[in-house]
Design a protein around this nucleic acid. Structure first.
Length: 591
RNA sequence: GCACCCAUAGUGAAGUGGAUAUCACAAUGGUCUUCGGAACCAUUAUGGAGGGUUCGAGUCCUUCUGGGUGCACCA
């Protein structure tokens, strides 16, 4: 059920007849819509291989093509242009409208994929920097599932690092943990009664700041972290309680963003695999001692070459820096990379994944290069397993710098969401809808998600709330609004929708936009370009709006025409809704 | 210093090596009025600079300029 594929098959048939390889044959949408609907530059690319001139080859192919409803022509210097008639488009539309997959096929080789996204840390409040990972990750998860992959979403909590030691040390210093440290305290019966989320949100930043200036404090926090990792009491019990408190809050925030995870494993769950991981490296002779730490050399040919020092006291510099990965610290503690590798080991014991995708900001590029190289080197990740780090850019304020509050502080994620809800509420109020915060959330959060996903993942972008929430333009609300308008028509209709007959140019545009949207899922799937789905969705909404503005559907006199138009409404609504769903954006009935 | 990412209209963005570089917003000029916000048309780019590969380069390679990020015992 794909016109592009039908065209490809027809041309392929001719190529086989001509005894030419069809390997490089691909049909694309026309970039000159006034000339044709589809095009292929097959002749331009391959003429040389067949010892022909592009124009000759194109003409030879077109001469042999004779397909009902399709018009083939050749354009200089050798394009083959294809136009399809209204009947073909009508047939396509009538198939799609009853198709439970909206006319979108599945990938031919479904894979097992794990997506690691979210990036929350226990005891640290989520902030704006935590928005993109769940937004992009959730959309990728849904896209892969939609196209037939088996996908596991694991948020991989940061629950095992120095921040835990720091938090506990600070809490202890500030007297919150006295009960736990009394002589003969029955640890299992004590709970953190005076500690709330607000306490954590105050204590951690304090500790984090202090460690920069206070060497001893940092050392002690290191020790505490080690205690937790060794499950020493009362540290471990305190740790577990802090984590439970924190996770509850994190979950709530993710739900506001429509991000749902299959697993809530964290770095601590990988702990059980740390020793085994280290043993594997040990056995393979990959470990080496360096300044008291155990490291793995992962530099490849031409990397990490010392640059001669100009003077004695100069710091050693390296060309193509790829320092060894530290798996074990001087004090026996383990680090981010170690946990990452152990997590890969854990996941590979859980299931056999074809691919693991990690979503973090681009500052962690080196970390993943290190972890992935280590995992491959030690055979912890099988050779044919794809380990993919998707690095995204920063969300900036209007000044082009990382988004901050007026006083220069990091903006809390909670506050961003509330701001979006408030702004959306104002807009709704103007439309006569009051006091519906859930509706406002769907619109506000959806607006931000669409604004985010419209950008290429790797680039920084500007968080412009007014632009995101505009009901006009390439925005989430515009798409939601288009659906709401269709709802309004479908509610008021006095006849059932019928068979679609494409007859006008506006209707053609809608079906072509639908075809493009349906093919965009596969392009996005290949190269993680969710922005393409966003723009194709918008184009479909826009094509529909053009029809809507010029055609009075409900007052159409010709009953067959009216039924067809109503069916087009339904068709567009279904496809737009599905697209939003794949992007992780809510659909609203009214707005 | 060493490495990675980025540079396209006033602004924000899009473009599997292919035809006349696309979209949104804003601005200016014009046409028309509402199944739910007005819509439609027109105008606005020496693609950061220079070289190279190619029949063909915004896209690939290279040098430079400007911005962001990172560079072992944080995560």
């Amino acid at each position: 059920m794909d016109i592009k594929e039908d065209i490809r098959r027809e041309i392929e048939k001719v190529l086989i007849e001509m005894d030419l390889s069809a390997d490089k044959l691909s049909i694309s949408f026309s970039n000159l819509p006034q000339l044709c609907d589809f095009q292929t530059n097959f002749a331009l690319i391959t003429a040389k291989n067949f010892n022909m001139k592009p124009l000759e080859l194109a003409n030879a192919i077109v001469d042999k093509l004779n397909v009902k409803g399709m018009e083939f022509s050749v354009a200089i210097p050798g394009f083959i242009n294809i136009k399809v008639n209204n009947e073909i488009l009508s047939n396509y539309a009538n198939e799609v409208i009853v198709d439970e997959r909206f006319g979108v096929g599945k990938v031919t080789n479904p894979r097992k994929i794990l997506i690691d996204y979210g990036g929350a840390n226990v005891a640290k409040e989520l902030h704006v920097g935590h928005l993109r990972s769940p937004i992009i990750g959730e959309a990728l998860k849904r896209l892969h599932r939609f196209l037939g992959d088996y996908v596991v979403a694991d948020t991989h909590l940061g629950d095992w690092g120095l921040q835990m030691g720091l938090t506990i040390l600070q809490l202890k210093n500030d007297g919150f943990l006295d009960d736990f440290f009394e002589k003969n305290a029955k640890i299992s019966e004590i709970s953190l009664k005076n500690v709330t989320l607000d306490t954590l949100n105050e204590e951690y930043p304090k500790a984090s700041k202090r460690k920069e200036a206070d060497e001893d404090f940092k050392k002690l926090a290191d020790t505490y972290t080690l205690y937790i990792q060794q499950k020493k009491e009362p540290y471990f019990t305190i740790y577990k309680q802090i984590k439970a408190l924190s996770v509850k809050e994190i979950k709530k925030n993710y739900e506001m963003l429509n991000a749902y995870f299959d697993y809530w494993y964290g770095e601590s769950d990988a702990d059980a695999y740390i020793q085994e991981t280290l043993d594997i490296f040990e056995k393979k002779g990959l470990l080496r001692e360096s300044d008291g730490a155990l490291v793995v050399d992962i530099a490849e040919e031409g990397e990490h070459i010392p640059i001669p020092k100009k003077s004695e006291d100069e710091v050693q510099r390296y060309k193509n820096p790829m320092p060894p990965a530290i798996l074990k610290k001087y004090n026996g503690g383990v680090l981010y990379v170690t946990t990452e590798i152990a997590t890969i080991l854990m996941r590979n014991k859980m299931d056999d994944f074809d691919e693991m995708i990690y979503l973090t900001d681009n500052r962690q590029g080196n970390h993943f290069v290190q972890a992935f190289r280590c995992a491959k080197k030690a055979g912890i990740s099988p050779e044919n397993q794809v380990l993919k780090h998707i690095a995204f850019g920063t969300m900036n304020g209007k000044d082009g710098k990382p988004f901050k509050t007026r006083s220069g502080e990091t903006v809390k994620l909670k506050d961003v969401i509330n701001l979006l809800i408030d702004k959306a509420s104002e807009k709704l109020k103007a439309n006569g809808i009051e006091n519906d915060r859930e509706l406002a959330r769907k619109i506000g959060v959806g607006a931000m998600k669409f604004g985010d996903l419209s950008n290429i993942i790797s680039k920084d972008y500007v968080f412009d709330i007014d632009k995101f929430l505009s009901f006009d333009g390439k925005t989430g609300p515009y798409i939601q609004y288009t659906i709401a308008r269709i709802n309004s028509i479908l509610e008021k209709k006095d006849v059932e929708d019928g068979v679609i007959h494409i007859s006008t140019n506006e209707e053609r545009e809608i079906i072509l936009a639908l075809l493009k949207l349906n093919s965009s899922y596969f392009v996005s799937y290949e190269d993680y370009s969710l922005n393409l789905i966003c723009s194709s969705t918008f184009d479909l909404a826009k094509a529909f709006s053009t029809l809507y503005n010029n055609t009075k559907i409900l007052s159409e006199k010709d009953i067959e025409k009216k039924k067809s138009l109503l069916a087009i409404c339904k068709l567009v609504k279904r496809s737009l809704s599905n697209a939003l769903n794949v992007l992780g954006i809510d659909i609203v009935e009214k707005m």
